[in-house]
């Protein structure tokens, strides 16, 4: 049955409407978890607030399990969903540059839009930077095109790399995530700050 648009159950126009609805849910969840706060996001890297770790990895494992079960019940054809290609050098290089941007800027692109929506002016500056950075990449593209296209591995999946099933891979990642949640809870007690309060249920 799914993906609905690929199987022509909904039209491309309806798909764009759903993109808007999905975006509302995405932005709502980001904001209600405090991803609209740069100090909360940056807290991840000093241990005083590890919400990023908890939300990000819970979302990733729920995503993995959900996609797995929809596929098992015949509701989602995994051969029709978009898989990110892996170009190894640019994945690492891009990630390193993004990591530097994260710790200096305090946001990532999605969270900066959620933060700007509630009036964070530092998020607006970050968004301005995003446009400049993307424009620089586009204009200078011939300079880094070789690096961008290098080490094309196709569409490898982690379970194939390790040589196990999709289900077992998901199970192993859940175990790793649980261990990281435990570290996160420990860090929030160890690195708690007098000038910062974690304000959540």
């Amino acid at each position: 049955m799914g993906p609905l648009v690929v199987n022509e159950i909904i039209s491309p126009e309806t798909n764009l409407f759903f993109a808007f609805i999905i975006g509302i849910a995405f932005g709502f969840v980001l904001e209600i978890n405090g991803f609209s706060s740069s100090r909360r996001l940056a807290g991840m890297f000093y241990g005083y607030d590890t919400t990023v770790l908890k939300v990000f990895f819970t979302a990733a494992i729920v995503g993995m399990i959900g996609i797995l079960f929809l596929s098992l019940f015949g509701m989602l054809d995994l051969s029709l969903i978009y898989i990110n290609p892996t170009f190894l050098w640019s994945a690492i290089g891009g990630g390193v540059i993004m990591g530097a941007g994260f710790i200096l800027g305090g946001y990532c692109p999605g969270t900066s839009f959620a933060a700007a929506s509630i009036g964070k002016l530092d998020a607006l500056a970050f968004i301005g930077g995003l446009f400049i950075g993307i424009f620089i990449f586009a204009e200078g593209y011939p300079l880094w095109e070789g690096f961008y296209e290098a080490k094309d591995l196709g569409y490898p999946l982690l379970n194939n790399l390790i040589g196990t099933s999709r289900g077992m891979m998901t199970f192993l990642i859940i175990l790793v995530a649980l261990a990281m949640f435990w570290v996160g809870e420990w860090a929030e007690k160890k690195f708690a700050r007098a000038d910062y309060k974690i304000n959540q249920h």
Binding site: A91, G94, A100, G101, G106, Y107, C108, S112, G129, A138
Partner: peptide, 19 residues
């Protein structure tokens, strides 16, 4: 924040997507 945004914008294109 502006510098971070510039880096993240550039990196997201190189890395074919962001966080």
């Amino acid at each position: 924040a502006l510098i971070g945004g510039i880096l993240f914008g550039f990196g997201s294109q190189l890395g074919r997507g962001c966080t």
